[in-house]
Amino acid sequence: MRDVLFKSIWRSAALGSVAILLNGCGIMSWFHSSPGPKTPPPLSKGEKQVSFSTQWQARLYGLWPIHPYQGTDIAHQGRQIVVSDASGHLVSLNDAGRQQWIRSLVGKSARGATIAHGVVYTGTTAGEVFAFDAKNGHKLWSVQLTSEVLTPVVFADDHLLLQTVNGHLWALDPKDGKVQWTFSMNQPSLILRAVSTPTVHDGVVYAGFADGTLAALSLSTGAELWHARVAIAHGSNELARMVDVAARPIVADGQVFAAAYQGNLAAYTLQSGSQNWSVPMSVYLTPVWFKNHLFVAEADGVIAEIDPGSGSVLWRNTRLKGHAMTGLSSCGDDLLATDNGGYLYAFNPKSGHRIGQTRLSSSGIQSSPVCLANHQILALSDAGTLYRIKLAKR
């Protein structure tokens, strides 16, 4: 019933917003219909510096709706690609796009799978975490948690890390899924249906929470080392007070960068969590650290470069303002982005100019572009087509 409601929210332009009470967890998860797909401004001949060519495309079957703020991760390791659909299927393909195996899950994997040391890990909306043999899809174990899993599983030094919709961060044993430790923060009454994927660096877990908090925890024990406020809720209603840290924290340049929806982009020292700088900015996609520079896609579709030392905006491209961006990444010398209109974009990271674009699908793209060897890219459409694209200079 809930899936039907989510689908109607997404497809109905007449609905501006809706809140849905999650069964048993006592909080409200927020969706609002993102801007309708838009056609981007055309590029002049002089601006076109990058071309895209399709190497192959694989049509996968199942349900593949894009939900606002919740893109799907494409897992890729060696010659294996693993994706998940919205009807609860986990699909493994080889690097030519041919299916190797498929498994049905209890619930659906909202954010995709993770491949680590020959094992595929994924969590589901039913609160279950699975481990499968990467070669044949044989189930190794499963474990039931207390709430809906809304992040990919992160493998780090004999720990599996993930977050659930009720504000809990879990560490599980990769061998059998047993709980090693848990950590939680107070949840506001209304949250985005997007949860920050934990980041691990030098034995420390950095995780964002729906109340606008960034926390640093010991990987081995889960003990809190420090926490900082990325954003402080303000406003006359619950919608205005939403400041979820939905983007994954980025550790680089001796700092940890965190971003909040309707909040700030900020940098903190790794050891103490003291704030180095903060810039008002609404962000839900994970920023990109690329060639010692920091790039962000703002919630309104604006792409920007931020000076990591001061937080100053070095350039801001507003040509796609009003577009619903679904991914941001890098490949080769270029910055890449995708949107819900089915477009793949390339930007010059030095100037911010758009230097290439192609429409992969008449439906949206629901994944950040994944960069492979030889300037090739994987992207997954809302219709369930997986594309392998070659990026070339003109």
Rank of each mutant, 00 (worst) to 15 (best):
A216G: 06
V279L: 01
A246H: 05
A379S: 09
G301P: 14
S218M: 15
R388Q: 11
K7M: 11
L63W: 05
N166G: 01
S367C: 06
H168L: 11
P349T: 08
Q255N: 10
Q262P: 13
Q77M: 11
S53G: 03
G309R: 14
H375E: 14
R2Q: 12
R316Y: 10
M185W: 09
K390H: 03
K350V: 13
W64I: 01
S189E: 07
P369N: 04
I102R: 15
G263S: 05
E224G: 05
H32R: 12
V230Q: 01
V195A: 02
V91G: 04
L239W: 07
T125L: 12
S351D: 09
V120N: 05
S361I: 01
G88C: 04
D244E: 07
A75T: 09
A13P: 14
H227L: 05
D339A: 10
G301W: 09
L314S: 12
Q99R: 12
P65W: 03
Y121W: 09
T151Q: 08
M242N: 08
T54V: 13
Q70W: 14
G46Q: 06
G46S: 03
Q57L: 10
G309I: 03
A252Y: 02
I102W: 14
G309Q: 12
V82F: 11
G212Y: 00
A373C: 09
G301R: 01
E238L: 07
G342N: 05
C25L: 13
S218Q: 06
K321N: 10
A14V: 13
A215K: 01
A246K: 08
N292Q: 06
L172I: 02
R59N: 11
S12H: 08
L21F: 09
G332Y: 13
L150S: 12
G384A: 03
M28K: 08
P369Q: 04
L15H: 09
S274K: 11
S236V: 02
L22R: 06
D339G: 13
G263E: 07
I115W: 13
G26W: 06
A215V: 06
G107H: 02
D95Y: 14
M185E: 14
D211H: 02
T122Q: 08
A260V: 08
N23W: 00
G273T: 08
L386N: 03
A96G: 13
D333E: 04
F257K: 14
V4P: 02
N94A: 07
A324R: 15
Q255G: 12
W56N: 08
S17P: 15
I66H: 11
E128V: 04
K175L: 00
D158L: 08
T122W: 15
P280G: 11
T122P: 10
F52S: 10
S184L: 00
L265Q: 12
W181H: 05
A297V: 03
V288N: 00
D176T: 05
S272V: 15
P40L: 00
S53D: 07
N340W: 00
D307W: 08
Q180N: 11
F183G: 14
A215G: 01
N374C: 05
G322Y: 00
T39R: 13
S87Y: 12
R193L: 07
G364K: 00
L172V: 01
G273A: 11
V288Y: 03
H323A: 07
S272A: 15
G203S: 04
L22Y: 06
W181Y: 09
G112Q: 07
V179L: 04
S87L: 05
D133T: 06
L5H: 04
S184A: 06
T146Q: 12
